[in-house]
Write a protein that binds this DNA or RNA. Structure first.
Lengths: 164, 164
DNA sequence: GTCAGTGCAAACTTTTTGCAACTAC
DNA sequence: GTAGTTGCAAAAAGTTTGCACTGAC
């Protein structure tokens, strides 16, 4: 039931945000918010689009998704990431701060937490800037790809020898 | 002349990279590398394209720019960022590690350095992952936009009062 | 001489925009 | 009733791809 509470809370936050900014409270907007808060991890617009069509049987256009997600970002209920080709989003209310570890080869994204890192970032003094949120992306090779590369390299070398 | 040295060095690193991977050493590739290393800060493909056309009077197609920049990334001479709409790149040889402060309103990007942050990130223990590089983006409002917003908000409120 | 690399244009993908229809207020 | 929203389709923006030609090896 924890989950239901979160959904109710974010709906309320969204309502307040819409009121405060003179936006209308349309069913589309709430349906989008609900769907997003039932997704774990990252998603892009296309995934969200299919998900809503399939599960919620509430069809919204892509244009509306783009419009609404901007509102949700401003309401601090969603954050936007930009790894890979398309923008990725994720819910951010009641979520622990986390960082992203991205494999430059296979594109796999792993989230991790690190108290010390968070602390270091939060305590950074910024001049003439009001921090709202941050993203830390660590790029590198996941163990799987690293192993694959080692294997490939060995093969290449033996091939080179053969050629010569 | 420091600058010339850097350009020579990166050209050499690139040559080694191309040799090691069986790629050809075309004039286009070196012209692109040279142009990139004469740019301070970030650039996108389009900027690079115009810059080469205007200044270096060496015309290369966008396709070649995309191809070459992938090689440069692999050679660790360029890194890729993804804020805003188009991918941003920057040279990375002989540059101090720095972080990015991005205004969510006007899109302005400011670089800054912070020893403590760097240390914290570098010393983070990662499981099953080989770190190659990282990006820290701090999102928020620059002082200019913040001031503008305050002004706007005040105006809106007085307008509301009038309407009522 | 060969094949990787290039330029060009077309294709593709993601996001934005213009406009008519709709509906929350 | 009216102005903010929506859906749709077209357009824009960024990137990738196919193909014929070129030039590095």
């Amino acid at each position: 039931m924890e989950d239901k509470n979160v959904k109710d809370t974010v709906r309320q936050i969204f309502t307040e945000y819409l009121n405060a900014n003179g936006h209308r409270k349309t069913p589309e907007r709430y349906a989008i918010l609900d769907t997003i808060y039932s997704i774990d991890g990252h998603f892009d617009i296309d995934t969200l689009y299919s998900l809503m069509a399939d599960q919620e049987n509430f069809r919204v256009s892509r244009a509306t998704l783009y419009n609404t997600i901007i509102l949700l970002i401003n309401a601090r209920l969603v954050i936007k990431h930009q790894f890979g080709n398309s923008s990725q989003y994720e819910k951010c209310y009641n979520r622990d701060t986390h960082h992203h570890q991205i494999c430059t080869q296979c594109g796999k994204v792993v989230e991790f937490q690190n108290e010390q890192l968070q602390q270091a970032i939060a305590s950074t003094k910024l001049s003439r800037f009001t921090l709202s949120h941050y993203s830390l992306y660590l790029y590198g090779l996941c163990s799987k790809c690293e192993r694959a590369n080692r294997k490939k390299k060995t093969n290449n070398q033996s091939q080179h020898k053969k050629e010569k």
